[in-house]
Amino acid sequence: MRRLSGESSSCGRDTGMVPPRMVPAEQSDEALMAAYVAGDPLAFDRLFVRWAPRIRQIYVRSGLGSDQADDLVQQCFLQVHRARSDFQPERRLHPWIYTIALNLRRQLFRSRGRKPEQGLDVEVHEPRAPSIDPDAPFVGALVRTALAKLPDPQREVIVLHWFEGMSFAEIAAVLGGTVTAHKVRAHRGYGRLRAELEAAGVTADVLRHYGGDSRG
C-alpha cells in the first residue's frame, strides 16, 4: 500500500495495468498530460499518483468522508480523461485539475441538495509531525468540524489558500470571480474559523501548540 508519497517506481505494479515505460521522473504535469493525450497510459498513472492524494485531501478537508472523497477522486480523474482533448499544453495543469475537482464537489452537493458532511473523520487524521500528545486527533477533529461549518465559498478559498498554498490570483483562476472577492472571503472565513474554535473552547495557545516547526 502506498500513501501520499508522490511518485514511485511502482506505477502499474500492483494494479496489473501498464508496465513501466519511458516517462522521465521529473516530467512536468503539462508534459505528462500531453503524453497522456497522445496515448501514453503510463502518463495517466503518474499524474494520478502525483495528484490524487492532493485532490483527496482537498475533499477531506472540505468536509467529505473518506469513501465519498475516494469516489470523487475517481470521478475527477474520469472527467480528466473525458476532457483530455480540451487540455491545452501551453496552459498549466494545476488550475485545470483543481477546477474540475472543485466543480465536481459542488455538483455533488447541488445534486444531493445538502451541505457537506461534518468533518469528524478521525480515521483520516495523521499529525503533520510525530506527536505523543493524545489530544492531537481531538483538536484536529474540532478544527475539521469548524472548517466544515464554514459557508462553502469561504471554505474553498481557505483550503486553496492555506493548504494548497495558492495565491489569490490562482484561486480566482480556479474558482472564478475577482481576486478582491476571494481575499474578502478568506478574511471572513479565517475570522469565522477563529470564532468557531473559540466557541468550542479551543484557545489560541492550544492551537499554536499544534502548528509550526517550533512546537514541542
Binding site: H125, P127, R128, V143, F163, G211
Partner: peptide, 11 residues
C-alpha cells in the same frame, strides 16, 4: 496551528 493540525489528512 489549528489548520496545521489537519494539514496532512491521510490519502
Amino acid at each position: 496551528g489549528g489548520l496545521d493540525a489537519i494539514a496532512s489528512a491521510a490519502t
